[in-house]
């Protein structure tokens, strides 16, 4: 009987221990599952944070890329005296998309980037630009001399997938940025200068021989140019105009006046109007030329040279 009881006790205790072990294994498994879940949640959260940073990284870098690219394009347009409205035709972000996607792929993120509606327009004071995007470029949102600068608008849509966790982040950003070089104003001012010369040149032509006519024209032209350039310097523009006046006698009382403004160079000198080209900061100058010819008749003609040419430069 004691032996039978011993066996029974041993059996019961064995069952109890096995039962406890089962509970322990079960607890351990659930504990591990919970730990795995926590680790997975943490990994997903970290992946989501990483994707969020990558999305903002794309936004800020595209803004920077467009700013630089537009800077270079408007520098070239201004150098050739072309219309700033052509700017939009020169813009494409395909190269940037390729670079960004390659970098993200190397860092475990599959990226699908679409950029739409890259537009540039003349900036007006009423059109507010994005404070953060302006700040990333190191330029203030509010500044007295942005009128006539270049508004940059674009839309970037990105779908980012973390290749290890398959976490996905889809976002669409509107870019409302600005390039501070006032190329639209430079172009307009250059046009105004030529128009005013055209309208006033007749009143500047006075005299009874070629030399007198040329000297009077030179005097009045210089007076006009000095006044014009002084006026624009109030808005932080500098300018230099080189000219050639040729007066030719064609008959006893008739002269041909040729005025050639060989180089009208207007430069934006405001605080932030720089472009980074070939590892240096440069100012943007709008360079054009202008030619006008007119016939001048005198009532009386005095003796003098048949033709005279005068060259000169005016700057502020």
């Amino acid at each position: 009987m004691p032996s039978k009881r011993k066996v029974k006790n041993a059996f019961l205790w064995s069952i109890a221990i096995v039962y406890l072990l089962v509970i322990l294994v079960f607890c351990s498994i659930s504990q591990n599952s919970a730990a795995e879940l926590i680790a997975q949640t943490a990994a997903n959260r970290m992946a989501a944070d990483r994707l969020e940073l990558a999305a903002y990284n794309l936004l800020f870098d595209l803004n920077e890329y467009l700013h630089k690219k537009i800077g270079i394009e408007l520098y070239l347009l201004a150098k050739n005296g072309e219309n700033p409205n052509q700017l939009v035709y020169e813009l494409s972000a395909a190269e940037w998309i390729k670079t960004a996607e390659t970098w993200l792929k190397a860092n475990g993120i599959a990226a699908f980037i679409v950029i739409q509606d890259i537009r540039t327009n003349r900036h007006t004071q009423n059109d507010k630009r994005d404070l953060i995007l302006m700040s990333t470029l190191g330029i203030p949102q509010e500044f007295e001399f942005y009128e006539g600068a270049v508004d940059i608008d674009a839309v970037i849509t990105t779908r980012l997938v973390d290749t290890s966790t398959q976490a996905t982040f889809l976002v669409k950003f509107n870019i409302k940025s600005l390039h501070p070089v006032r190329i639209y104003d430079l172009c307009t001012m250059s046009g105004i200068l030529c128009k005013r010369v055209t309208s006033e040149i007749r009143s500047w032509a006075k005299g009874t021989n070629a030399e007198r006519i040329a000297l009077n024209l030179k005097k009045e032209l210089r007076k006009f140019l000095v006044s014009f350039l002084n006026g624009v310097s109030q808005s932080f523009y500098s300018g230099q105009v080189s000219y050639r006046i040729i007066v030719r006698k064609t008959s006893a009382v008739q002269y041909i006046i040729n005025l050639h403004l060989m180089k009208i160079e207007l430069t934006d000198m405001s605080k932030y109007a720089f472009v980074l080209i070939d590892k240096r900061f440069v100012r943007v100058s709008y360079i054009t030329s202008f030619k006008i010819s007119l016939k001048y008749l005198t009532a009386t003609s005095k003796a003098g040279p048949k033709q005279i040419a005068i060259d000169g430069v005016v700057s502020n």
Binding site: M46, D49, E52, L53, Y56, F60, I132, S135, T136, G138
Partner: peptide
């Protein structure tokens, strides 16, 4: 710590330090 590192980079980009 990763979040803090991300915030440092984002804030520095927003303040224009990355451009600089």
């Amino acid at each position: 710590l990763q979040k803090v590192a991300q915030q440092i980079l984002l804030v520095s980009a927003m303040k224009g330090y990355v451009t600089e």
